[in-house]
Design a protein around this nucleic acid. Structure first.
Lengths: 362, 362
DNA sequence: ATGAAAGCGCTAACAT
DNA sequence: ATGTTAGCGCTTTCAT
């Protein structure tokens, strides 16, 4: 191929006192005898380059073990390929499933998930949010409903698509995809009332300062509202310990409830984890489920279906939620390239009672 | 403050046709009437700047809602603040705990975890690895022991600290922190042999092409070796279904084992998940644990301690593993700034049998 | 089909 | 204590 016959060295010969030893696009271009742009094209849009040139470049890339630096690419192209995801915790099967589903949906589109989690702490949410935004994600996904004002402001200022998931907020920041935790509570109460129970209880964590499970509390609010509407007492709704709940929580809470004079006939647990813990504790106490007490959970965790008796629960498809979020994201990001980002989208994925054997008729 | 009296506009006045609306360091510098470097200093090393100047800059930052672009910063400083973490899956409580522990350890040092997972697929590991390296992490943590050759080569070429975790590889790439899965198997077998059992079985997933649970298979190898050393038969070691295992796996596998003429007296499950599933299935079948069959698991998942009878298992502290990895990382990255990175470090966090009620003496 | 110039938004290194 | 210069490693844009 013709190379310019100038006396001064061409650009790609420019020496550099580099700190790192990793090859750059310039090293590849020199080795292949092309300009940096040609290397860039081979890597991003191979058909734009003559096959012969392309092969030469590809060989140079392989020989050097060249891996492009996305930070540099992002800076130039203004596309980072990051999607930010903020979760309360990773050590919850349902949230982990969301992350899993999302990653899958985004994998082909070459987006990379940036995960942060808050440990149910709103101050931490704000800190994490700032860190995330510094990475210039092209969109942000977070568990919805309650944020601090400054957090909301930062979100708005970022000027990227925002999707709130899991909890359907009454005032979404922009897009939302999830279900109503309030509705979960009402549904659970309705279900137990319809089974004919009179003394109905619940177990949840107590709301506690900055570290709180707002989602769980919403479920309890719905639960109590529905009880009241049916003229049932709400004094068997127990707030015990602090979030996040787990097996022990349920065990301790059911013990407390069973010790009461007006022991409940049926109990709704804020999470399957608590519910399973409660069932296990009943086994140990010789209290039969559901004959002596019916127990119902939320979240449809795998373990719930495996215990004896299997747990009646309320199911939300978190993995599908993650995948749908991924779909919406892809759509948002592609049409963002064309026209205005369009209307906020609110999707209720709904919920359903999964009837198993831990609840009988009252 | 004195500004140069040149006719051409000084640098900070330079107009830019920017695509994005987000404020840059230049906007802040203009508003505060200082140079960009001063802004940079206020944000990274505030004490270096006069209090009065600092306040002015901070106000400008707040007024504009300025969030620095880390991609640009990384490019310039050659420090991305990323640590890469590659896991088989996020939907396993123990791996999630590793991620959790690691994040905690790194949080203060302002490192950001880049998580990828392979779904136990080695081809995917390679793809993910390339994506991760393109983000120029300062170190990489991965679940150890088995990698493809090209993956190992990429890791070496990246010239950053590599820590293999969970599984202690026989030939570590560099640093390693974990335990020996082979030893887990031997320990389990030894424990059951010492309890006096003769017919000892095990349940695991069958190794299956590219998608395989090498760690689980290692455990089985150790288990079988120990059985042989004690002249026990290994024909009750059952490979059933495919990884990753869960409750159903254990239920199905124990059914198969119990149906045999030479039904085992004791069974080691490759994971607590399988073990719990097995115990639950026994409950349903009316097979008493441990009277009719003893069951032992691995991983010490929370649920194992909650069921009836509580599960005897082998414990590895994954969260501590994550935290220790974080500590090693911090140390490696700081001393990397000083001298050579030093010797490879291999840490065995060990394991211990947690004796509960699901195993009795044979 | 390929290349040259310019610049993305920062910070290291060297002034002053 | 603060400013200036010169890039970091890419991609955009505009030539050719």
């Amino acid at each position: 191929m013709p190379r310019s016959a100038q006396i001064n060295p061409p650009a790609e010969t420019k020496p550099a006192r580099r700190t790192s030893q990793r090859p750059t696009i310039r090293d590849v271009s020199r080795l292949a005898g092309v300009s940096r742009m040609t290397v860039s094209r081979v890597l991003s849009d191979p058909d734009m380059v003559l096959p012969a040139t392309r092969e030469r470049v590809l060989k140079a890339v392989a020989d050097l073990g060249y891996v492009p630096d996305r930070a540099a690419g992002s800076l130039s192209s203004r596309r980072t390929g990051f999607i930010a995801l903020m979760l309360p915790t990773l050590t919850n099967a349902n949230f982990a499933a969301v992350a899993h589903g999302l990653t899958e949906a985004l994998r082909e589109a070459e987006y990379h998930l940036l995960i942060a989690y808050t440990d149910y702490d709103m101050a931490e949410e704000e800190r994490q949010l700032r860190n995330l935004l510094a990475r210039r994600p092209e969109a942000i996904v977070l568990t919805g409903a309650v944020h601090r004002r400054t957090a909301t402001r930062m979100l708005l200022a970022a000027d990227i698509p925002v999707i709130e998931i899991a909890d359907l907020p009454s005032q979404p920041i922009e897009h939302a995809i999830g279900f109503s935790n309030y509705q979960v509570g009402r549904t659970a109460a309705r279900y137990l009332i319809d089974r004919g129970f009179e003394r109905i209880g619940a177990i949840a964590a107590s709301p506690d300062g900055d570290v709180a499970d707002h989602r769980g509390e919403e479920r309890m609010r719905g639960f109590e509202d529905e009880l009241r509407l049916s003229r049932r007492a709400t004094d068997l709704v127990l707030r015990h310990g602090s979030a996040p709940v787990s097996f022990h929580h349920g065990a301790a809470a059911i013990r407390e409830l069973l010790a009461r004079d007006d022991r409940p006939q049926a109990v709704f647990a804020v999470s399957d984890l608590s519910a399973v813990g409660a069932v296990m504790e009943c086994q140990r106490l010789g209290v039969r489920v559901p004959e002596d007490v019916s127990i119902m959970g939320f979240g449809d965790f795998e373990i719930g279906g495996e215990i004896n008796p299997p747990l009646t629960t309320i199911h939300v498809d978190f993995r599908a939620l993650g995948q749908r979020t991924g779909g919406m994201l892809l759509d948002l990001l592609s049409r963002n390239a064309e026209a205005g980002s369009g209307e906020p989208r609110i999707v209720d994925v709904g919920l359903r009672v999964v009837e198993r054997a831990s609840v009988k008729d009252g």
